[in-house]
């Protein structure tokens, strides 16, 4: 170990001088000056971490351990971005490249659809996203909260407002007058249904179908 400290690096300096670093000629493009990478605030106020301005972040890394780390970073970034900007669903193949997070126009780097799929594939495995509808690879729901957490939030909200045993429509839960301050406002029905399913399993809710024009309703117990 002590030889590590001396041999390779001691020879480095001589190597550096013996190969005599050539300054670039004027004709060639000189290397860009070091730019420190700092967080970026988006128009919606979301703070992108510094690594979002790091060009290689947008290339899936070939080194397996680097890649694992990179996908973890992407997962955390996608979920916090979705939560901040209230993005429920993304389309990987859409013209906007899936969403602002996947495309840093300042440095002209995109996480290409194939790479987004690689990240989403891991997120699906970890229960942080799900293809919707199933068995396709373009549109995904993002679970910045898992259905069970959503179910608990909704149930707490219902109990706090004394609405147990009341029948509510799906629309009233997510877009009603009372829910506009909740975190689950404007939640799409396909996520709401999964959240309610977790409550039904626990015997805390019942789905009542066919309430005329209002569609399905739910009663919390």
């Amino acid at each position: 170990m002590s030889s590590f400290a001396t041999s390779p690096f001691a020879s480095t300096s001589s190597q550096a001088t013996s190969t005599s670093l050539q300054p670039l000629n004027d004709g060639e493009k000189s290397p860009s000056p070091p730019t420190p990478l700092r967080p970026v605030i988006s128009s919606t106020g979301f703070e992108y971490p510094a690594i979002w301005s790091f060009p290689p972040f947008f290339t899936i890394q070939p080194n397996p351990s680097t890649q694992t780390h990179q996908i973890q970073l992407w997962t955390a970034l996608i979920l916090s971005w979705a939560q901040h900007d209230r993005i429920w669903e993304i389309n990987v193949d859409a013209a906007d490249g899936g969403g602002e997070v996947f495309w840093n126009r300042t440095i002209s780097r995109r996480l290409l659809p194939a790479s987004i799929r690689a990240v989403l594939g891991q997120m699906v495995k970890d229960g942080q996203a799900v293809p919707e509808p199933a068995k396709q690879t373009s549109t995904y729901l993002l679970y910045w909260r898992r259905p069970e957490e959503w179910g608990n939030l909704i149930y707490d909200w219902i109990s706090d407002n004394g609405m147990t045993n009341t029948i509510l429509t799906f629309y009233e839960i997510t877009d009603g007058d009372l829910s506009h301050t909740t975190e689950f406002r404007e939640m799409p029905p396909n996520i709401l249904r999964r959240a309610l399913d977790t409550l039904i399993k626990k015997g805390k809710a019942q789905i009542l179908s066919g309430l005329g024009e209002a569609g399905e309703g739910v009663r919390f117990l």
């Binding site: 060009p55 070939p62 351990s65 002209s108």
Partner: peptide, 13 residues
């Protein structure tokens, strides 16, 4: 990149 994990590749350069 591959052996040491010191480097990240940028394929969109």
């Amino acid at each position: 990149v591959m052996r040491e994990g010191l480097g990240w590749i940028d394929q969109q350069a």
